[in-house]
Design a protein around this nucleic acid. Structure first.
Lengths: 187, 187, 187, 187
DNA sequence: GATGAATGAGACTTCATTCAT
DNA sequence: CATGAATGAAGTCTCATTCAT
């Protein structure tokens, strides 16, 4: 199946470019060049730039998701699993610093589409579900909300770290995040 | 001075539009129309779209900053002040939901400029300094990092709330955030 | 190949327009209209106005160069060849009066480009080489410099003739130019 | 008279800028800044950019003309005077290399004006008259045309020298020019 | 399946010029 | 005399998308 292979090549090229520069700064022409396809070829496989970006984004998220899950699976205690997630998330964030920006941009575009928001919930819910279970085990008062906050923290960290990278140590940040998110005040 | 008044009108128009739609979706033409100026007039006051956006962003940040500080000032205990900040920050995020996106976009543009990152540090440092003092008083192990994490949480919250607004209650989020950020494990 | 044909049509349209009016007075829109292409089509074939102008200029120069060489080839004596060149050069200048202005304008633009001067040397050197050989045969003291001066004279003539066309006869100018450039003082 | 002084300052600023960069590349704003005047001030003194450029050009030409004449006056023989002119002209050309380009540009603009050509003849005729007298004394067959050719040579030299400055020595060029322009074949 | 020529709308920006103050 | 805010037309260029081959 030659088409499938081409399609994958396009998605990978797009993901790389979108992870480096902003949605509007990457042109279809450039993606085509990088993927070794003609411009027409792109539109043969994807009806629009937005659809391609969306697919590239989810491709990236899936890779990351699998990574996280594989790290968690062998672990027993909720705290260990939480640490593994924080560890993996923060690492991911600084490995592909601009990825979150890409996330936001695709999100931005999705707002202009009909029912554009729907695609996000599916993904987010799965992630939140895992965290929620962990926080419930730990004994947090409001596991769902705490899960949401950790997600937000990771996303925000991705943004801010770009600015303050020389003032904050990632390892310290992980430890502090772990510390506060495992906090269960009893009183 | 007539110029100053026009300039302010432009900044306000820009802020409004940028808070609603993305940087690339708002054209200078549109800003001009909304401000009641000619397109040329815009460039008389601002050398480029980016500079205008930057000014509009900082105009917005300043408003918000003043609001937060006025809420904090009368408060005595560190915990009260922390709550006031969380309260104000989350409220601000909800009120002008898209503002953070705008923040990110200007930030994005600034990466393309020479020394583009510098402008952020000044603002961020002031904010972080205030938080750091609070966390020191509270007795956090690593006040600087915790301050940074709260900043990140707020930024991330702004993003994610757009997607999950019907699943998460802002008030619950505030409370949970306050809970974990005031956590000081002694053990 | 359809693209090649369109490209040629564009170049020809550009040459015509640039030969009539100045670089800044001719807009890409106008060239597109004349070539029967859309504005975007121009930029599909040429990355910028400058590149298009450059190509149009060299297209014109090549036509002229071929003409000159075909006139020279059958001639034996150096003096005959010199006359043929002067004859052809002055004629060319009169025929396409504004062409030299165009030459100068592209040259002007090239100064703003990196290594912009390089393109001229190649062309100029070939032309100068031919002249130098002729002057050496004639017995000029400094054939290289004299070749350069004849080139300069032709270029300057192109400019000045625009102003003084009703005071100077081209044929007389040719003769006088031939007279002084064949001069070899022995003393 | 304060106005006169301002006017002169503007003309000088304009001349400097136009000698460095092209007519279209120099904006009225820039001239105003350099002259220490407001943009409105420029238009108070000159009705348009073209008129200002024209005045600046003639201001430059006059300076140069006076220089040449002062060098010639004390000289007796026609050959000495010719040498002085060639010497001065070539020197002038390389001192303010871009001046001739400026000349051409103003000329270009003048073509768009009604009766735009007239202004040139006056100046050119004076210059040509002086040369013509010299060539008549020397015994040239066609003094008028030869005068015209020397003018053209100088203008063309200005252009070409920019490209070939490292291949041609100005002093050699002067000598060779003098040699051929004093040539009087008797036969 | 794939190509790449072609489109056309729209973007940012520049700039000479005008005019109220 | 002088200012500088304001204008509006025009310019170059970008880019997602379409379509004949």
């Amino acid at each position: 199946m030659k088409g499938e292979e081409t399609r994958r090549r396009i998605v990978r090229a797009a993901l790389e470019l979108f992870s480096e520069r902003s949605y509007h700064d990457v042109s279809m022409e450039e993606i085509a060049r990088k993927a070794g396809v003609s411009k027409g070829g792109l539109f043969h496989h994807f009806p629009s730039k937005y659809e391609l970006a969306k697919e590239a984004l989810f491709y990236g998220l899936e890779i990351w998701g699998r990574e996280v899950i594989s790290r968690i699976q062998p672990l027993e205690s909720a705290e260990e699993r939480l640490w593994a997630i924080i560890d993996a998330s923060f690492d991911f964030v600084i490995q592909s610093l601009k990825f979150s920006r890409f996330f936001l941009e695709v999100y931005e575009e999705s707002l202009k589409q009909k029912n554009g928001l729907d695609i996000w919930k599916a993904f987010g819910s799965e992630y939140l579900g895992i965290l929620e279970d962990i926080f419930r085990e730990i004994g947090a008062e409001n596991p769902r909300v705490r899960a949401f906050l950790l997600g937000a923290l990771v996303d925000g960290f991705a943004l801010d770290y770009l600015v303050f990278r020389d003032e904050v140590s990632v390892e310290e940040a992980k430890k502090e995040a772990f510390r506060i998110f495992t906090c269960t005040k009893r009183s």
